[in-house]
């Protein structure tokens, strides 16, 4: 499995003539914590949607040797590509444990499904540990704090055995402390996985990104380390008047 990486080549998404993603090519290696930034409407979420099968796209997106584009959503998930959403979407009526157990079970046969859970799968136990929700395992997910829900979602990606993690604004609405914890969490799990984070929060990006891709109007504007990207005059131009002064871009 080592050496697998996510490679996008000339990915293009068009909605009724409007080009949302206009030929994006990028490569994300395992262990890289890649941040995908850009102004609103740059096509960040659409790009994630294309990779995960939510919208049709042309071009190519491969992980390992497998083509991801234009497959069914659940097939792509089974290939090891997981994502989160801007709004935390956990199963609120189920417990933390049940949420994770469902995420772990896409390969279960009918007989396993029709029986009760006799014990907690090991990967679920591990994930509870990693995301720090072990004590809340029997709590309904609906009563969790916002940050905890996002961590639960990340935990679900872990037990799902996702090796490509696409996170859409994971720290939006979090407190400074929660952001920090989330960043540490991403570092821990990112070492063995390929992680792409769509984010608006520039401070968070500066603290935790290993590399950054800047999208603008559906194209890659700049790519490199945080320092390189920040020094890029084209990036400054795009963000000028909005971010350069405050250091943060908000939607």
């Amino acid at each position: 499995m080592n050496g697998d990486y996510l490679e996008l080549t000339d990915v293009r998404v068009t909605f009724d003539g409007f080009v949302a993603v206009d030929g994006v090519s990028m490569t994300v290696l395992q262990g890289d914590l890649r941040f995908l930034i850009g102004p609103n409407g740059a096509g960040k979420t659409t790009l994630v949607d294309a990779i995960t099968g939510l919208v049709a796209a042309s071009g190519s997106a491969t992980f390992g040797a497998t083509q991801l584009l234009n497959q069914k959503v659940h097939k792509i998930a089974r290939l090891g590509v997981g994502r989160t959403f801007q709004t935390a979407s956990v199963f609120e009526e189920l417990t933390v444990l049940q949420n994770l157990d469902i995420a772990a079970g896409a390969g279960r046969g009918p007989l396993t499904l029709l029986r009760r859970r006799s014990s907690v799968p090991e990967e679920v136990e591990e994930a509870l540990e990693i995301i720090g929700l072990g004590d809340l395992r029997d709590k309904q997910a609906g009563v969790l704090a916002h940050g905890q829900k996002q961590w639960l979602e990340i935990g679900m990606l872990l037990v799902q055995n996702a090796r490509v993690l696409l996170l859409d604004e994971p720290v939006a609405g979090m407190s400074a402390h929660e952001r920090d914890e989330t960043g540490q969490l991403l570092r821990r799990i990112g070492a063995e996985r390929t992680v792409v984070v769509v984010e608006h929060d520039m401070d968070f990006m500066r603290s935790f990104a290993t590399s950054v891709t800047v999208l603008h109007a559906g194209r890659v504007l700049s790519e490199g380390t945080v320092a390189e990207v920040q020094a890029d005059p084209r990036v400054q131009e795009v963000y000028l008047g909005r971010a350069a002064t405050t250091g943060e871009v908000r939607s």
Binding site: G107, G109, S118, S119, P121
Partner: peptide, 17 residues
């Protein structure tokens, strides 16, 4: 990728459920 399914369950401690 879907071989995870059941292999670990028997080993996990019963009391946690």
């Amino acid at each position: 990728m879907t071989t995870l399914k059941d292999k670990t369950e028997s080993a996990a401690p019963q009391a946690r459920v």
